[in-house]
Design a protein around this nucleic acid. Structure first.
Lengths: 147, 147
DNA sequence: GATGTTGTAACAATTATGGTTACGACCAGA
DNA sequence: TCTGGTCGTAACCATAATTGTTACAACATC
């Protein structure tokens, strides 16, 4: 029940895609197609285009349409943190409150929502601080070092 | 697509249940039934029993069976942190890697898993540090202050 | 025994996630 | 102007997680 096979892989895929584009451009190519990226990620090109559409709205990537179309970075890898990517994909909250509002007649039922929300906010802030520490340039450096 | 209506509420429910038991015992009662707790949480008693079974295995709660049965805390509220509760419910990872293994022929596909895993580990460590800062005693104090 | 509660299995309803097909929009180049 | 390749996005499916629900045996107190 707790194996979480289907947890969110969007941050992983998005970081992978951007890093791939960055390396590809660094090797002299203008744009990368969703097909190429999907081959590296091992998924369907539509999954890549869906994610890159969000990254594009967030100002991390740009697309060119028509023939010879594809994707390019909107900023250098060094100027994109994992927090930027995380925000771009609009993640839901890590922890949810009660599915159904608890009993407001009960002291605990009445007050625990706000009490936990304060903690959850701090947790998410810590998570964001941590993600902000790593840029995609750092990720690419690790990737190349591992060869 | 991103509304996340069904995120994990288990930490919320588990903290609620334990806090409720703690307050109930502090008011002079020996044990609390899953029925009573479920009324405060506004859910089904089985949901409470399922969660308390895990908390019991983790040494946070104890149950008594037979007539006049119910639940009690295994430790004082001040000795239970939200991290203890979090670990007890065996949460899955916050971020997942690729659903299907990426292309190992590609430099990025080959190296990005380990690179991101290192970051994700740091993020989860930060999350745990943050959860460890708050005890259920703190939560109860906030709850009572809010009345 | 009789009673009330736990512990747990089994199943349903709802939702998120990722994959897939399809197709119009778009644009460089012939 | 046409052709070909790619984006952008809608629509749908399969799978799995989550929560709620019913059911019932196990158990302990009276």
């Amino acid at each position: 029940m707790e194996s979480d096979v289907s947890a969110n892989s969007r941050l992983t895929i998005a970081a992978h895609a951007l890093t791939w584009i960055g390396l590809y451009q660094r090797r002299g190519h203008e744009v990368a197609t969703s097909e190429q990226i999907a081959t590296s990620v091992n998924t369907n090109p539509v999954v890549i285009r869906r994610l890159l559409a969000k990254l594009s709205k967030a100002g991390l990537a740009d697309s060119r349409r028509g023939a010879g179309a594809g994707w390019m970075l909107a900023r250098d890898l060094a100027a994109i943190t994992l927090l930027d990517v995380y925000q771009a994909i609009e993640p839901g909250p890590i922890f949810a409150l009660h599915p159904a509002a608890p009993n407001p007649e009960c002291v605990v039922g009445h007050g625990i929502g706000p009490a936990l929300t304060a903690v959850y906010d701090d947790v998410e802030a810590a998570l964001r601080r941590e993600l902000a520490k790593t840029t995609l340039e750092d990720v690419l450096r690790d990737v190349l070092k591992a060869v």
